[in-house]
Amino acid sequence: MKDIIFDDFQNTVNESLIRHKSILDIITKLQESNARINRAIAKSITNCGCIEVCAKKQDALENINEDIESLKSHMSTQIKGKLCNKCRDIIQNEIGNNLFYLTSLCNVLDLNLYDILLKEYDKIDTLGKYSLR
């Protein structure tokens, strides 16, 4: 069922992309949409203030001597707070635009988004915590 949703999304994107059919248009729009995600997150910090970044060196690797599982508990997202509804909506919208252009890139290169997702899932599932991303 999920593959049908992905395929339907990919087909719908293919039908609705009219102005930016060129590979150059698509990759630059994808890059621009990624920058807009970053900007929306930055604005939720600097303009709205619903989240804060409390960044410092993550020294977990220096302090872990036991196993890789204990590494998770020592790593931080460095985010304090929660997105407000307005910032959440804006960021979700920007991520949606990014997915649109990512899917457009898949279309123009004749790649199946669902197959890519499955391949990545299998890699993560196989390597598990040892993928260390």
Rank of each mutant, 00 (worst) to 15 (best):
Ser33Lys: 05
Leu117Asp: 05
Gly96Ile: 01
Gly81Glu: 03
Ala55Met: 01
Cys87Phe: 02
Asn65Lys: 14
Ile18Phe: 08
Thr126Cys: 12
Asp8Lys: 05
Val108Lys: 13
Ile5Trp: 03
Tyr130Pro: 01
Thr103Asp: 05
Phe6Gln: 00
Leu111Gly: 03
Gly81His: 02
Cys106Ala: 12
Tyr130His: 15
Leu17Thr: 13
Lys72Asn: 13
Phe6His: 12
Asp67Ala: 01
Asp3Ala: 09
Tyr114Leu: 06
Ile68Ala: 04
Asp7Gly: 10
Leu30Pro: 09
Phe100Cys: 04
Ile26Leu: 09
Lys86Tyr: 10
Asn85Pro: 02
Leu102Phe: 14
Cys50Ala: 00
Asp89Lys: 13
Phe100Arg: 05
Leu113Asp: 06
Cys84Met: 03
Lys119Val: 07
Gln92Thr: 11
Glu52Thr: 13
Cys84Ser: 10
Cys54Gln: 08
Lys129Ala: 08
Ser70Glu: 11
Lys2Thr: 14
Lys21Asp: 08
Thr46Glu: 06
Leu61Cys: 03
Asp125Pro: 00
Leu117Val: 11
Leu71Glu: 06
Phe100Gln: 01
Leu113Gln: 12
Gln58Phe: 06
Arg39Asp: 13
Ile5Ala: 10
Met1Lys: 09
Cys106Phe: 11
Lys119Ile: 06
Asp59Pro: 00
Ile116His: 04
Ile64Asp: 09
Asn98Lys: 10
Asp110Gly: 05
Gln10Lys: 04
Leu113His: 10
Glu94Thr: 12
Leu24Gln: 11
Ile27Glu: 11
Ile37Asp: 12
Lys129Arg: 08
Asn97Pro: 00
Tyr130Ile: 00
Ile41Ser: 15
Glu15Phe: 11
Thr103Phe: 08
Lys2His: 07
Cys87Tyr: 07
Phe100Ala: 02
Glu62Val: 12
Glu69Asp: 04
Arg19Pro: 02
Asp115Leu: 07
His20Val: 00
Lys29His: 05
Arg133Ser: 09
Cys106Met: 08
Arg39Leu: 14
Leu118Ala: 05
Thr12Gly: 00
Asp125Gln: 13
